[in-house]
Amino acid sequence: MFNYSVRRLLTAVPTILILIVFAFYLMRLAPGGPFTSEKPLPPAVMENVLKRYGMDEPLHMQLFTYIKNIVCCFDFGPSFSQKDRSVNDIIAQGFPVTLTYGFWSAVFVLVLGIPLGIIAALRHNSFWDYLMTGLAIFSQIFPNFVLAPLMVLLFTLSWGLLPGGGWNGGQWQYIVMPAIALGTSYMAGVARLTRGSLLEVLNSPFIRTARAKGLPERTILIRHALKPALLPTLTYMGPVFVYMITGSVFIDVFFSTGGIGQDFIDGAYSRDYSVLLGLAIIYCVLTFSINLVLDLLYAWIDPKVRDSL
């Protein structure tokens, strides 16, 4: 298992490197740059600016320096568009915010989604079952960028219960709506998947064996059915976290949380190479680590996979 983790990390590193190189050239070879504006700068000034950011050197040298600085000093370089801020500052300020409500959103997805799916499977065709089907359709119709305005309309503008945006040091009132708006559709997905896989497991031969042993239904559910029923959910969580990261960009923008999503979009507008690249790396590292954790969790549950690692 330890070897496996190491192997996975070793493959993640070149993958991220390839992504860096790809993104780097994609941005650099595209027309325009951070210093292109309506009024062109005088050539002398331009030369100075380029020199200051090391952009007068050949591209591959710049790339080399960039990677070297990340590897040796964890330094993502200065921001091109935000004066006196380094990419490190931006990450240090925004990343905790995004992580915080992202974490609560994941908690919301799992803590509500899994029990709901289990109840719906056990009480087939009951109120809970219909609630879940409704929720699945609801989440399909109201993706986060429709749900979020709706929630603000209700909870902020109509009832004045929750603040419609901002962060304020991460007080809970400021976390609720971002976390729910981000998580709802995945919560529905988790519930639906859990329900489906639990129904399938409950119909499987080894559950029939367990029933033939005379075990009470509760024991069968907890001891025999739950683990295998949650495996598909676990697999599903990988892409879900990736989707949630995508969603978080929107949440950061819409709720003005101050998370890195806003910086990323701003960076795209102002062609801020270092911010875009730095944040892209952070996003990738995040998803790779989450996927690794999920894989290890999967292996821990499924003995067959465990042996193959």
Binding site: A23, A30, F264, A268, A280, Y283, T287
Partner: peptide
Amino acid sequence: TIWLSVPYIIFFVVWQAFF
């Protein structure tokens, strides 16, 4: 596998902004 673990928004935003 790698592509699935890259949030598409990164690529999307960069591409749209530059092209």
